[in-house]
Design a protein around this nucleic acid. Structure first.
Lengths: 264, 264
DNA sequence: GACAATATTTCGTAATGCGAAATGCTATTT
DNA sequence: AAATAGCATTTCGCATTACGAAATATTGTC
């Protein structure tokens, strides 16, 4: 899925090819051979090999010495985590998220808006169901903004122009029967979210999962992220979500915001 | 620091330049401008811009809309975590590591040998001192093998040829006064590590920190990773490290190995 | 030890990316 | 409001760079 940026007029071919290679390797847990890569990309084998071995030199990919297959390299882990480390609000928030997860015994997420989608930048499972597995595969993954509680919180604090851009690029895909798919209805809904300071997700993204989310603000009051609690629909009478859990998410979000310098 | 691979005869220039850009952006928490990048790299401004905007199109870097600075992009987080997700033994191990951290109230690491160094692939702080901050910046980072408990465990199970390769490429840098810096002494020490099934780090990498580590084995008995407990030297009489903590690390490592199919 | 299926290297060619210079944009100053 | 300065961004003719078909090396198999 090509991102929604304007395509640069002078897109460098090698970068385009490397991006394609990374995407393909990202879907191949055990790596792929030079031949397979050429098959999938249409590059001649020599070309595939030249690109892979150049990438391997810098540890962006690595070659299994026995199968000769190429897979993603650990330089990507280093860079990805360096980027996350640069998001200082994330470090500030983390202890609060852990506390929230332990107090509610539910899963907590932290999300930012990036390229018109909700992007997971942290996740804490309650100690009960900490698996770790999911967390890892989740960081850096994306969710439509219009059908998640976190996404709606972020949308609600956007300028009209920015909101329109999200809609025009991403639309309002129907993920479940509860998804809000009409722009005007969404606009009205977000007005309410803005006013009340939190958003609910009533199985709008995935049947069986409900969430409550609240905004994180920086020292200037700008909304820079959102946090949420996710609850299996079975375990959640809708009322509890809208009372206890809602209060705790809102409270935690405010505490994080204050720590970030948000006055009041 | 260029890796120790043989330089491919046909290194693609664009990939070389992109690697340099990523390294520079990785050290710039708030990103840098086109001009600054050109200054640091020597590329003409037009070239820097073309590379950055091509990378931005695929989300490998992103541009701050207000400062116009470029920083690392979230595609790197996605790929890095995808790679970690592919290491299935990591997912298997995680619950054990959490349990170990909570039981001992100390920090637990998981490490593999990659490119002749010990590479962090997981970290669990005990709930007491969970900060999260360090964890993030640590994943994907590296440590010399010869002066860490985890590294020595991994070295101890290498073939002679593989061991020699590590030494010849990385040497035995003296990190503290306790670091083992003579090959023959290290060789003898590793023989002991191999025999006893665990390794100690007696402030060999960093004054003030001691560790115990044990190997993780796969279904064929091959050592594929190592786990460790790290303890501030203040808090650790050396005896406790060599008794209780050692036993728990060894036990946990064996349990993980069994879960991975290691017979016995 | 020959064969087959790979990965890897070679090398002449032209397409691709290069980069100096022109242009466009934004913020600041007077 | 106009001028200026300091950027980012785009343009375009040129030569370097990467291309890729084919040759070769390597690895595993019968």
């Amino acid at each position: 899925m090509p991102p929604n940026r304007s395509k640069p007029n002078n897109l460098v071919q090698t970068i385009e090819r490397v991006a394609l290679i990374f995407d393909i390797l990202g879907m191949a847990p055990n790596g792929i051979s030079v031949g397979e890569l050429s098959e999938k990309t249409g590059f001649p084998k020599g070309t595939s090999h030249r690109l892979l071995s150049s990438l391997a030199y810098f540890d962006y990919v690595r070659q299994d010495p026995v199968t000769k297959n190429y897979q993603l390299g650990f330089k990507l882990v280093e860079l990805g985590n360096r980027l996350l480390g640069h998001l200082d609000f994330r470090a500030v928030a983390r202890p609060f998220l852990i506390h929230l997860a332990e107090r509610t015994k539910e899963t907590v997420h932290m999300v930012i808006l990036d390229r018109n989608e909700a992007l997971y930048i942290d996740k804490v499972d309650s100690s009960e169901h900490r698996s770790g597995l999911r967390m890892v595969s989740m960081l850096g993954s994306r969710l439509p903004a219009h059908c998640s509680a976190v996404g709606k919180v972020l949308l609600a604090h956007l300028s009209d122009a920015a909101f329109d851009e999200v809609i025009s690029h991403k639309g309002l895909a129907e993920r479940t029967r509860n998804t809000i798919t009409e722009v005007e209805r969404l606009r009205a809904h977000l007005k309410k979210v803005f006013a009340q300071g939190y958003a609910l997700d009533n199985e709008e993204n995935e049947i069986g999962i409900r969430c409550v989310a609240a905004p994180i603000r920086n020292e200037r009051g700008a909304v820079i992220a959102a946090i949420s609690i996710s609850v299996p629909a079975l375990r959640s009478e809708k009322s509890k979500l809208e009372t206890t859990l809602k209060d705790r998410v809102v409270e935690t979000a405010l505490n994080i915001s204050r720590k970030l310098g948000y006055p009041q």
